[in-house]
Simulated assay, not measured.
Amino acid sequence: MHKIFRLINPAPLTARVRSRECCTYLYRLLKFVGWIPPKQNLQRYLYVFWSALVLTFGELYVPMGLALSLVKNFTNFTPGDFLGVLQAFVNANGATLKSIVVIFLYSRLSQMESVLDIMDERLRSDSDRRRIHKAVADSNYIFLVYAIVYCCFITSVFVSGVLNGQPPWFLYNPIFDWRSGAINFWMHSIVEQIFVTLSVLTVLIWDTYPLIFVFMMRAHIKLLREHIRNLRTDPLKTEAENYDELTRCIRDHKLILQCCDIMRPVLSGIIFVHFQLVGVLLGVIMINVLYFSDLMHGISSLIYLTAILLESFPCCYLSDLLAEDSNDLLNLLAQSNWINAERKYKSTLIIFMHHVQQPIVFIAGGLFTISMNSNIKMAKFAFSVMTIVQQMNLGDRLK
Score class of each variant (00 low, 15 high):
L204Q: 13
I142G: 03
R131G: 15
P167M: 01
W206G: 06
W206F: 15
T208Q: 04
N173M: 11
V196Y: 15
Q166V: 12
P210Y: 01
G161Y: 10
L163D: 07
S139Q: 07
R130K: 03
I132R: 01
R179T: 15
V162C: 09
E121D: 03
W169F: 15
Q166M: 10
I148K: 02
Y141P: 00
I154A: 00
S160T: 12
D117C: 03
C152Q: 09
W186I: 05
L123G: 11
I194F: 15
N140R: 04
H133A: 00
V196M: 11
D177M: 06
V159E: 13
V145R: 12
T202M: 10
G181W: 14
R179S: 15
Y150G: 06
L198V: 13
Y172Q: 08
S160F: 08
M187H: 06
P210R: 02
D177T: 07
C152A: 13
K134M: 10
S180D: 14
Y146H: 04
W186N: 09
R179K: 15
Q193V: 08
L116H: 04
D207I: 04
I205E: 01
S189V: 02
E192D: 09
L144G: 01
T155G: 13
F143C: 02
D128G: 10
L171S: 13
D138R: 05
S189G: 04
Y209V: 06
L211N: 03
P174R: 06
A135R: 03
Y172N: 11
R179G: 10
I132G: 00
T155F: 15
R124F: 07
S189K: 06
I190N: 08
M119I: 01
N173T: 12
D207Q: 07
S189P: 02
S160R: 03
V115G: 00
Y209L: 14
S189Y: 09
T197Y: 10
W169M: 09
D117I: 03
R124T: 14
V157Y: 13
L123P: 06
D207Y: 08
I183G: 06
E121Q: 03
V145G: 03
V145S: 06
L123I: 01
G165C: 08
N173F: 12
D177P: 07
V162D: 07
A135H: 00
Y150F: 14
Y172M: 08
L211H: 04
R130W: 02
D117W: 01
V191I: 15
P168W: 11
S180G: 01
L198I: 14
A182S: 12
L204Y: 09
L144E: 02
S127K: 04
L163A: 10
L211I: 00
P174C: 07
A182F: 13
T208P: 00
Y146E: 02
R131D: 13
Y172T: 08
N173R: 12
I118F: 00
A135V: 04
H188T: 14
Y141Q: 11
L123Q: 07
I205W: 09
I132Y: 00
D117G: 00
I194N: 15
G165T: 12
